[in-house]
Nucleic acid binder design. Sequence first.
DNA 1: CGGCTTCGTATTGTCGGACAAACAGACGGT
DNA 2: ACCGTCTGTTTGTCCGACAATACGAAGCCG
Lengths: 255, 255
Amino acid sequence: MAERFERIQASPAYQLVADAIEREILSGRIQPGERIGTEAALVEQFGVNRSTVREGIRLLEQSGLIRRDSSRRLYASLPRYAKLASRISRALLLHEVTFRELYETTMALEVASVRLAAERITPPQLQAIADNLARTEAALDDPRILSELDTEFHALIAEAAGNRVLQLAREPTSLLIYPTTQVIFEGSPRGPSRLLEAHSRLHAALAARDRQAAGVWMERHVVDWRKGFERAGKDLDTPVERVYMDHVMVGGSRL
Amino acid sequence: MAERFERIQASPAYQLVADAIEREILSGRIQPGERIGTEAALVEQFGVNRSTVREGIRLLEQSGLIRRDSSRRLYASLPRYAKLASRISRALLLHEVTFRELYETTMALEVASVRLAAERITPPQLQAIADNLARTEAALDDPRILSELDTEFHALIAEAAGNRVLQLAREPTSLLIYPTTQVIFEGSPRGPSRLLEAHSRLHAALAARDRQAAGVWMERHVVDWRKGFERAGKDLDTPVERVYMDHVMVGGSRL
DNA sequence: CGGCTTCGTATTGTCGGACAAACAGACGGT
DNA sequence: ACCGTCTGTTTGTCCGACAATACGAAGCCG
């Protein structure tokens, strides 16, 4: 039988409420920062019960388009990158992506980031990276701190690249892959010093605005991660494990 | 004044309900596909009112962790890539990212994708790309169809790369950037044939499993997009316009 | 005996109303 | 100008109710 009718979808009222409000925001008729009407007002506008309005609001609340300030009042809002990235990380985790997939993606994104950063980095950003480097040098014997500094280092570079799309694209992968350095370093005496050297070289390349060198060193650095990962007895083709995912947030607090 | 106390956050009950369920899913205690208890059961377990439970469920529903099948019953679910990508696109749109940011990111991700695809593409995937190519050739005078085929072409390559992380990373950017080809081609007589040539070359490189050639041609292809964009009188540093965003979905239907 | 229909029950979607807590803004006192 | 108080508003939570729909079991017919 031919497809005579297109599929009819009877969405519940709360969904329609959410869609209507979302449309207002996406189309720009409600500016970010502007207040959404009170529940009572929405009840009147939509002609539905307050419970229904509230359920619709909950749908949007999670998507980041709506935010509550201290007073619990609702404002239209720009979705926060950190929240989005965390959400994507969780999705990748649930889909059981492999470390190989993370590795390949990280390679592409980090190299692209550092090459752009070499062109655009500002003195304060360079200074921030130097600070990170100093702290890294002081924490060579603490894998936990080292792993956090490593994450920060790459985030700083991404920021210096001056590209928010690239920044958002790399963040979820970064959240999943960098925590593993902690485990890698716990059984690798030479690992920390190799990390420090790579970071130093990257900093130098950035300071010299040497796009080419920055890219090459980043590539080596990421390859080094893979080698360390394999040396730690892990297989690239195993799915990301939940164990590492301390930092994946749920409702503002750690999982 | 020093930060003496850490910020105290009193989350509403519906938020706690949502967090609790989310934790169950993320930790694996509830498997994807498994049913979430009925509202009545959750009311009993959490000791809160049904309205509260429902609001909590709405929070999760939007995040894709929970899905309703035809019967409206709730199942734990893996977040859909398409939905996530669409959501990210919308966020980028609201943040008014520039075409330059999209361009740079696309360059990195598409080149990486095609290089991997050259190694891993399977005969059926190659065939799908050949089909796309044939349809492209038949639609050279219709910018609208051409733009859709272009989007599909690159999605096929990303799929052939066999990397879900990379695939998800490029999807949001792709959703924003490829629709512009329609506008570009409307004033560019030679554009469509250039697109076809690039796609043909890419297909040939993939068929030959030539990683290097595939990367080079993709790079040229993306640069070509930029040139066309500028030739159409547009500035790379302008924010993405909502006008192009027909395909950004809200609640299952187009915006 | 198997397939189909029918009917009762379970579950969700929506509604109405109610109340406590927290907040914003106005008011008045010092 | 600063401080505390008061009041109306807004949100969070609860209770109860009912219609629509889906599911599952019982019954019917071939």
